[in-house]
Amino acid sequence: MDTRFESKEHKVKVGLAEMLKGGVIMDVTTPEQAKIAEQAGAAAVMALERVPSDIRAEGGVARMADLDIIENIKRVVTIPVMAKCRIGHFIEARVLETLEIDFIDESEVLTPADNAYHVNKWDFKVPFVCGCRTLGEALRRIAEGAAMIRTKGEAGTGDVSQAVKHLREINSAMKSLTVISETELYGVAKEHRVSIEIVREVAKKGKLPVPNFAAGGVATPADAALCMHLGAEAVFVGSGIFKSDNPEKYGAAIVNATTHWRDYAVIAEHSHGLGGAMKGIQAESIPAEEQLQVR
């Protein structure tokens, strides 16, 4: 195994991901929204210029957020603040690191800066989270130094089906690793273009070596609990909160459902009188070239 996995630096990066477990990470675009998210019970906020559904609607190139937005959000909350950089854009990542952001999301929601390579995340002190659809994608990002993995889902749709698909896909691929032979593990490593050591590690433990969260289309309390049931260890909610009719109540209800994901009576009790969820669009109706998950 790459000795960097055993380093103190990596340990404290994964450590912060561990601390976010069981929580909800909410997209926010203003300090006011960040305060609402914190009071709703968010475990962290993601500082952005536009939520994914607006990025999708408005089009154009989506980049790292305006630094003043990020700084202002950092100032008003005590929970960790995350921000997104474009895939492969290691300078945006360096700038965010300089701002002492707590976690960077190298995200397919922004327009990729490099169509061949992701950021070499080992080079940074700040931890990274990356999206994935399959076990191979997850393991490649982990091999690049990601301290947390999340599903890609299909961001900005409010349709949870793609996050569900990605969680199931990764789970079943991991489960199969636990029962196949050593010889076959070499085949898996080759197929996924990752080292045999990392494949062996997943085969031994039946789970990823870093926390695995859900993201992309989570829009309701029940969606969040569904993702937790399918093995997600925490939930990212993008457009779902501030595109709902009542973000304060909606945010709180999603947090409650994530905490009490096994207790359906509690989920129901706290899901009354929320007003409407974000409108959303069916993910499968989006043409392939407009899907964010393929990035």
Partner: peptide, 12 residues
């Protein structure tokens, strides 16, 4: 974890 989050949920 996050003490802010736990504090809110303890009350709730």
């Amino acid at each position: 974890g996050e003490s802010t989050t736990m504090n809110i949920l303890m009350d709730r």
